[in-house]
Design a protein around this nucleic acid. Structure first.
Lengths: 367, 367
DNA sequence: TTCAATTTGTTCGTATGTATC
DNA sequence: GGATACATACGAACAAATTGA
């Protein structure tokens, strides 16, 4: 006999449970009866039953009997998949909308959402990636931390790729890793924003951009490209860099920029938060938006139209739609083995409001 | 002997593993040796060892011996706890702030966050509770759906209580269930809001409240109590009820209220969303806030100061702090067995802005 | 309420099979 | 191959919990 008796008996009883010979919650024959039925010792029956109890098919009640458990059928039939989402921020700015998009779509397809934020801190990113891997999530959507710097958590990402867990990068990606991503066309955004100001006759255009993520880098690239195409020169003191750690110094930097010998007539801001801060700073200096300085922003968040008197000309951001498509991408990757895991890039479009003004005497602001 | 021999032996061996008498990956004595050592039968030793194998303390190699496993120590040290959070909404209104408070605190204590929203739909609540139970979350923070109605998901809540998973209700709780909660003092809020209008000389005070959750019920209770204390009569047509399903009819109801024979001079709104909608409706009718009608709101969300020209007098909401305390409550419940799982009630306070006006000729609005 | 039958739980003893070293 | 160690299997007895008469 190849298989031990107790395993054969275990399989036989298991089949009787699955085929409903022993219905749910009913009492199965006693150990003594089963001993006679299978013509083995009671010990062998107990061995078979104890494994079935361990596997969740049966439960025993001392003095009463052994019964068919409903736990196994529940567990087996309903394995709920979980998607991990790690973003830099969670509840600020445009992130609630993105997460809502993800949550709605996942929920529609009966997926769970496991959420964490990194505060753009690589330590925190590492902890959260560990968390997600321990939880054995079935897919990951990650907004990379400091995507323009060499990331010390690359080994975790390599683990994820090795385990073939579907992974989608949001907003940015690491150059070192060849992972799919869902982003804005950031270079295009920088170009469109710059071209808008050029078309309005601006010749001194500054940009405030982020140095530690690839979005900032790409927008700067678009800015430089647009200047170059228009035959305008790139001026070092018209580019302000900031990162997560020194963001509190931005007001000072804006002050220096506007109060310099060579002040810009137009400023391209990294996002609406920076734009609002810039406007406040400029107004403190007694200058007006857009009369003295035009502002172009990115993201079209609720902040775009929240500042009294100034509605931001800004690059559109799909927000909830981006979350939705990210979720769909992950679900497809999990459920459809032939799904083409290609990146998604949203084209950048400009929403023109009243924070930009034409310097051409013959022209008017496009509205 | 109270305890079976095999359990005593199991404990003894377990202690030897923990105290490193049997070091990691070392071979423990054979079944025969242990039989002699404990003076029991080999079967008894096998019983003890098989449980320790099941618990991950030991592993056996057929023909070789029984060894101390490192899996248990790994597992014990690394078991990341997960807290499930189910709210009605996720990314709107004050919810991002609450969730941020929860997330920050959980993250600080190395907990994971599993998130879901119900859109105030009991079906969705059921699905999400199932999801959370399947995932074997270590604690739950739930904003109940339609807390003023009999909830069809009570059996899930009873399951949760039976499994002794720490559970904290947010914003409201079900009367049928005796679960701890973290809420505002809603009755007090209704009373304070009403008293504020009474003190300003208003005699016709309406309230727009939600019929399907206990917050709405309690605020109404405070309103009635304040009227009663002031010797004022409760008028049926000054109370507007709405629920999640018929909220689109609120504008019509407001119209009827303001355009009736007996229009109020002050309206207490369920929250800032309702307040904004009410103001818009009133302004459409050519009336002014606060000159013709005073508005008192609840929640002090970003909407409170977002409407041009009208800053809402509103009941304060701790938002992020509430999330933080909810998370702390759950963490304490899990980690500290002696933690007193008592409810948390935030006292209600009024923030007075310019949406309320005194009708007393001798008085001015407190500012 | 008590008691006896039934059923599972614990413990002993013994023998043989099979994998490892 | 032989010694050792775990795996399977049989038999027996008593304890403890449940159930129903």
């Amino acid at each position: 006999m190849n298989q031990p008796k107790y395993l054969a008996i275990k399989d036989d009883i298991k089949n009787k449970i699955i085929s409903n010979v022993y219905p749910l919650d009913s009492k199965i024959p006693s150990e003594m009866d089963l001993r006679d039925e299978y013509s083995v010792s009671r010990h062998t029956i107990r061995q078979a039953i104890s494994e079935l109890v361990k596997d969740g098919y049966l439960y025993k009640i001392h003095g009463s009997g052994t019964y068919v458990s409903d736990r196994h059928s529940k567990k087996a039939s309903k394995k709920m998949k979980t998607i991990g989402v790690v973003t830099t921020y969670l509840s600020d700015y445009i992130f609630p909308s993105i997460i809502r998009g993800i949550e709605k779509e996942l929920s529609k397809h009966q997926y769970s959402l496991m959420l964490a934020s990194t505060q753009n801190n690589v330590e925190s990113e590492r902890e959260n990636l560990e968390k997600m891997l321990e939880h054995e999530v079935d897919g990951l959507i990650i907004e990379p931390t400091k995507s323009n710097l060499l990331n010390p958590n690359l080994n975790y990402y390599l683990d994820i790729l090795e385990e073939e867990i579907p992974l989608l990068m949001l907003h940015a990606s690491y150059d070192e890793l060849d992972t799919p991503f869902i982003t804005m066309d950031d270079e295009g955004a920088g170009r469109i924003a710059t071209n808008h100001l050029i078309e309005l006759g601006h010749e001194k255009i500054a940009i405030i951009t982020k140095s530690d993520d690839s979005q900032g880098k790409n927008r700067l690239k678009g800015y430089i490209d647009a200047l170059h195409t228009a035959g305008m020169s790139y001026e070092n003191d018209h580019v302000i860099f900031f990162d997560t750690e020194d963001r509190h110094e931005i007001p000072k930097k804006i002050n220096n920029l506007v109060d310099s010998d060579n002040p810009p007539t137009g400023i391209i801001c990294y996002n609406d938060q920076i734009a609002i801060s810039t406007i406040q700073q400029i107004q403190c200096l007694g200058l007006k938006i857009p009369d003295d300085i035009s502002i172009v922003s990115h993201d079209d968040s609720f902040l775009s139209t929240s500042f009294p008197g100034v509605n931001l000309t800004t690059i559109e951001h799909p927000q909830e739609e981006m979350g939705k498509q990210a979720a769909q991408w992950i679900i497809n990757s999990i459920e459809n083995p032939e799904f083409d895991r290609k990146p998604i890039v949203f084209p950048s479009e400009l929403i023109i409001r009243n924070s930009t003004k034409s310097l051409n005497p013959t022209e008017k602001v496009v509205e």
